[in-house]
Amino acid sequence: MKINWFTVIAQVINFLILVWLLRRFLYKPVLNAIDEREKNIASQLKDAEAKETKAKKEQAEFARKNETFDKEKKALMDKAIVETNEERQKLLEAARNEATELRSKLDKSLKDMQENLNRDISQKTLQEVFAIARKALADLASLSLEEQSANIFIKRINDLKKDEKKQFVEAFKKGSNLHAGSQGLILIQSAFDLPEKQQAEIKSAVNEVLGTKTQFQFKTAPEIISGIELTSNGYKLAWSISEYLNSLQKNISEMLNDKTIKDETKKAPVEVPAEVPVTEPEKAPIVKPKVKFKIKSEKNK
């Protein structure tokens, strides 16, 4: 239990040195490190808080924008729907119009086709009728159709009524005056070559009517089907069997129309008129054709 005072003093100095050393090498660095880390953490927390605040703000902003966007989207959508409907209506209207137009065009073309068909049929019928008539006449009376036609034409000239005769003569004389120095020329056109005999008969008949001798010109025109035509200065006297053909054509047209209507409507079948001459083609040549003369006044021909 002795106290060595030198040791005491030495230990005091030792301890104070140790205090200084540890403070320098241990406590200060550790405390500084702790402080610094705490500062770091605090700043990071502050940062995080600031970021959170910012994020919340941005979220709110975003939500607001989203809402606005939704509203705008809805409005645009509604508008687009309305516009689309309008457009659709327009397009439908256009399509309907187009369809109507097309249908009318189709109708027209159908009609044209029908007309063409009619014309073809009438043409064909005409030729057939003509051929049959010619054969029948030749067989029955040893007469050619041409001769018979000429005879009928002459008969017609002779049977001209007074008024008609006067008209003819006036027209002839007028023509003669107009063409001074030249006699009035009478043009006779026929579908076939008129035999000499018939030519002479026609000449004499016409001369008789006019009471003067005049010049004649005979011409063959195949487009005048089975007929004879007399032309003089705008006066025209003609006979043909086109009247029969016209009536035939009329009947066929009526029949076709009826059929078309029936097809279109698909309703109760329309009764086809009983007396349609075309339906019995063998009758046509047998029935004695009604000879009709057509007098037309064509000026400036």
């Binding site: 030792n14 050393l21 090498f25 241990l26 490190a33 880390r37 770091n40």
Partner: peptide, 22 residues
């Protein structure tokens, strides 16, 4: 002295690699 040496050297060694991160 020996204890002082141990303490100081140990402190230096430990605090040499102190980090301030998390």
């Amino acid at each position: 002295w020996a204890i002082m040496l141990v303490l100081v050297v140990g402190s230096v060694l430990i605090t040499r690699k102190l980090k301030t991160g998390i």
